[in-house]
Amino acid sequence: MGKVVGAFATSHSPGVTGWPERADPRKREAIETAFGEARRRIDELKPDAIVAISVEHFTNFNFSNLPAFAIATGDSYLGPVTAEMAEFINVPQHEYPGNGKLGRHIYEFALTNEFDPALVEGGLAFDENFCVPLKHLDPDSKYPLVPIILNGVNPPWPTAKRCYDFGEMVRHAVEAQNEVQRVVVIGTGGLSHWVGLPESGTVNEEFDRDFIARIESGDPEQIKNYSPQEIDAAGNGAHEVRTWIAAAGAIGAPFEVLAYEPVPEWLTGTAVAAATPGLNL
């Protein structure tokens, strides 16, 4: 039986890799140390695949088709999407490996378990959503990915409860197959930030710390009962915390927040978290 052996959640601000030096050195060190610890734990978990859950910033989808959830089943993914973006976020453009077979299994499992995600068989390109955190978490791109996209960029968004339940479904899907034994789930996005809005560059630390307390509690009810209005108080970019909520559903255990720093220079409340209940630390 396959198993979700660990879950991780991180911010994906372009500043983390694109202009790390602009942050307060102490904050930068705290975040980069936390990314290093997350990378160490992922390697120790020896995953056969990573289910990577994020939003995408109108890099692939648009108002011709904006799915609430989409599961990709490709064998490789280009990222960053353009040479310009590669330069902007300081990540070399390359192909990330995919595990299309596991992606297909999760997609089919979803359809028989009350979820109706969009199917993306190919053509999905990455932006900062995956490229920024994976530069720290899997710098050699050695783990095959199953990318899952949820809508965190335009209302109406899927509810927090739906995102948590989607994550639970992913866990059950992993457990319902035998080919891929060890799966790590990564959620990326948030915390508080504003994109393209006058508040850009401010951080809602109160929201961030409350969110961290909830994600560390491991209590699903505290995570699932967010309203869109509550999240909106932390900016349009904060809606990406749905990716953390889905990762929480996938592991069903409390997260340990390895670092949190409000970093206006990166335009986000920046955090790295891990849930590795089975790991001998």
Binding site: F58, W194, V195, G196, L197, S200
Partner: peptide, 28 residues
């Protein structure tokens, strides 16, 4: 923004039209 366009798309479009980030945020 006032007529309800998505902020991400407004911002990305501005950048593609060679409007600098600082100019964009100053304007809005």
């Amino acid at each position: 923004h006032e007529i309800g366009a998505n902020p991400y798309l407004i911002y990305f479009c501005a950048l593609q039209l060679q409007v600098g980030r600082e100019s964009y945020y100053e304007q809005i």
